[in-house]
């Protein structure tokens, strides 16, 4: 007990509001403090920041350092390597002599640092531009997915009954499909025609298409646990208290339920970003995600596939980007979860 309060204080005349001696740290601020002390999460966060910054600076690299356009093919161009002018794409000398072999990594930042791809485009510049797309799609589809899942999960858990039944069956239907199969089917249909649904118009080939598709297929993944959490909250006395005070359903959901599920949503965000980015890469690798000449890490892996034996750097570099980013996001996500819910920690630790 912090103070032995008297049973009743005399109703005093209004005094100037006294500020607490120690401003009370809210749950969010306390979580941030815990996150700061989590070394692996901080390292992962710093790594992510680096990757994001690098990708944001893609135009700077392309225009100022490498002087190259990563989106137009450069099949007849030449480059100077070791003081010699060589074609960017050399006719293959092996086997039947069909196909081309692009120049390999020069390790010179101004001049095909990681070599060229099979259309003579600078791989490093494409990697940075592709990263922008991969991250953009990953983050925005994670935000869209979590937002949608929060609304649906809270509605289903709060109202129960037929609303819950309908929404849960909707989740079941989506979940019944293998994730990639569903995504591929949606992409194949939508990529050619675009999406026209009521007021929503997305042109074929727009980056928004993979965002919407990926966000949709993962909605049940986030909405299900949220629904369960809301159902558990439904029987808490503070919800009954709010109803007893005369709060409407909307107000109870917004002011009592939402603040209690928001930490879960925040935990899901980095994890879903990683998952969505991987999905995007997979779809782009299968040519049903980002469409040429736009790049993403997935399309670059695909580009490198044909050159795997002669120029493996292309695939390896893009693969490393995807892998490192996904690992960093997951480590950060784990840190966020530990910080927001210190009691749920399974392993011991400080």
């Amino acid at each position: 007990m912090t103070s032995a309060a008297p049973t009743t204080a005399p109703a005093a005349a209004p005094q100037p509001a006294v500020q607490p001696a120690r401003p009370s740290a809210g749950p969010w601020r306390r979580a941030l403090g815990r996150l700061r002390h989590n070394r692996s999460a901080m390292i992962a966060g710093a790594g992510l920041l680096l990757i994001v910054l690098a990708c944001l600076l893609a135009p700077v690299y392309a225009n100022v350092i490498a002087h190259t356009d990563p989106f137009t093919s450069n099949a007849s161009g030449t480059a100077i390597v070791n003081g010699q002018r060589v074609p960017v794409l050399a006719q293959s000398t092996e086997g039947l002599g069909l196909g081309v072999t692009p120049i390999g990594p020069t390790w010179d930042p101004g001049n095909y640092l990681l070599g060229a791809d099979n259309q003579g485009r600078d791989v490093m510049a494409r990697l940075l531009y592709g990263g922008r797309n991969s991250l953009l799609i990953g983050v925005s589809s994670a935000v869209l997915c979590c937002g949608l899942a929060t609304v649906l999960g809270v509605l289903a858990g709060y109202f129960g009954g037929w609303i819950d039944a309908v929404l849960s069956r909707f989740f079941d239907v989506i979940w019944a499909f293998p994730v990639y199969l569903l995504a591929i089917c949606l992409s194949v249909v939508l990529l050619t025609s675009g999406l026209h649904l009521g007021p929503i118009h997305i042109d074929a080939g727009s980056l928004a298409l993979p965002v919407v598709i990926i966000a949709l297929i993962y909605v049940p993944y986030v909405a299900r646990p949220l629904r369960g959490q809301v159902m558990a909250l439904r029987n808490k006395e503070f919800l009954h208290a709010a109803v007893g005070l005369g709060a409407s359903d909307l107000r109870v959901m917004r002011r009592e339920v939402l603040p209690n599920v928001l930490p879960t949503v925040v935990v899901f965000l980095p994890l879903m970003t990683a998952l969505n980015m991987l999905t995007e890469s997979a779809l782009s690798f299968l040519s049903v995600g980002v469409q040429s000449p736009d790049a993403s890490w997935g399309t670059i892996i695909n580009d490198g596939l044909a050159l795997l034996y002669t120029r493996p750097t292309i695939t390896i570099a893009a693969g490393l980007c995807v892998g490192l980013t996904a690992v960093a996001l997951n480590v950060l996500g784990d840190g966020v979860r530990d910080a927001l819910d210190p009691n749920a920690r399974l392993r011991g630790g400080a």
């Binding site: 103070s3 008297p6 009743t8 204080a9 500020q19 607490p20």
Partner: peptide, 11 residues
């Protein structure tokens, strides 16, 4: 005040 808490408890 009425229930015996102080203003420092508000936040």
């Amino acid at each position: 005040d009425l229930v015996g808490l102080t203003r420092a408890h508000l936040d």
